[in-house]
């Protein structure tokens, strides 16, 4: 292998060969940004109702809750794990909130109960994966049934309704003008996750584990602890999403958020995160969330049914991964 070494280079090795700007322009995120702009323009031509501040604000509800989960899911997938139980955590957290509400508690207790349930579910997943070393895909397929199953045991075919008026703020309230609480929360969480993944030691550990967990362990990273925290974080974000969704719908049914885990995974993969772990960025997930929201909203304005939308997302998911690979294959001849 000696011949692969660039012999001409002396002892001082440059930090980077490509400037961050040229790299950014050729990145997956740049492509996603272009797609987002294209979808935006297409929508504004397709429907006269699109370019309206309030309509656009409404459109954000299509992705804010899913994106909150997707941020945590992105970190989990980068670390080489996955959590398919997130939607079921929402169901269970919402159910617990309903129970707390029925017991006569007010909004603060309801919210706390939702977040605590999320954390507890995340801790359970984390225990099985990080502590017992079980494969996360199977564990979370199991807890996916378990968590939602508990909701069904509690609720059966009933529903909790009658949440307090002030509880509605989280899913229906506006911070300022057209900026809903959920949208602001989405933006804040995007920033928090950006910093956590790209600007902290913890985030770097996540990448190291995703690329090579053994070498990460041999580099002094507490691999199991990082994995546990990631599941905890995913549980917490599911709890937050449960608060928002329950508040927005104003009711809890055991079937709440069904299928949301797949949408969150789709969002993460579309955002450029490698499903096998090791690479991906929060900005990509943010852009993927916006694209998915805009497409859903645009189709809605055109009265296209939701299921057609899901075909589109399925194609998008496969297409975005297949096209670069096919292109590479063609170039190689």
């Amino acid at each position: 292998m000696t011949m692969t070494e660039p012999k001409s280079i002396g002892r001082v090795i440059p930090d980077r060969l490509t400037s961050p700007l040229s790299r950014a322009l050729r990145s997956w995120e740049a492509l996603l940004f272009a797609v987002a702009v294209a979808v935006f323009i297409a929508n504004s031509f397709a429907s006269p109702y699109f370019l309206n501040a309030w309509n656009l604000s409404d459109a954000t509800f299509n992705f804010t809750e899913k994106a909150m989960i997707a941020f945590a899911m992105a970190m989990l997938i980068i670390a080489g794990e996955i959590d398919l139980s997130v939607a079921s955590i929402i169901a269970l957290a919402s159910t617990v909130m309903g129970l707390v509400m029925t017991a006569g508690y007010g909004t603060p207790e309801i919210v706390l109960a939702g977040l605590a349930t999320g954390l507890a579910c995340g801790a359970l997943n984390g225990f099985f994966v990080a502590r017992l070393g079980l494969p996360s895909i199977v564990v979370t397929i199991g807890t996916m049934s378990l968590f939602r199953g508990v909701s069904y045991i509690v609720l059966g075919d009933q529903a909790f309704t009658g949440y307090p008026k002030d509880f509605a703020y989280f899913g229906q309230g506006y911070v300022w003008w057209v900026f809903s609480f959920e949208l602001v929360l989405f933006a804040v969480l995007a920033l928090v996750f950006y910093i956590l993944l790209h600007r902290t030691n913890f985030g770097r550990a996540v990448y190291a584990i995703g690329n090579n967990p053994t070498a990460a362990l041999f580099s002094g990273i507490r691999v199991d602890r990082v994995r546990f925290i990631l599941f905890l974080l995913t549980g917490l974000m599911s709890g937050i999403a449960a608060v928002c969704l329950t508040s927005r719908l104003g009711s809890t049914r055991p079937s709440i958020a069904t299928g949301m885990e797949l949408e969150a995974v789709t969002m993460v993969v579309l955002g450029g995160v490698n499903i096998l772990g090791g690479s991906g960025r929060i900005l990509g997930v943010v852009l993927a969330a916006i694209i998915m929201g805009l497409v859903t909203f645009g189709f809605g304005l055109l009265n296209v049914p939701g299921i057609v939308m899901s075909i589109f997302l399925g194609l998008l998911l496969i297409g975005t991964i297949a096209l670069p690979r096919l292109a590479k294959g063609l170039r190689r001849g």
Binding site: L146, R148, G149, I153
Partner: peptide, 9 residues
Amino acid sequence: FWQLAISGS
């Protein structure tokens, strides 16, 4: 309604 939780477990 118990079925889901049992199979999950």
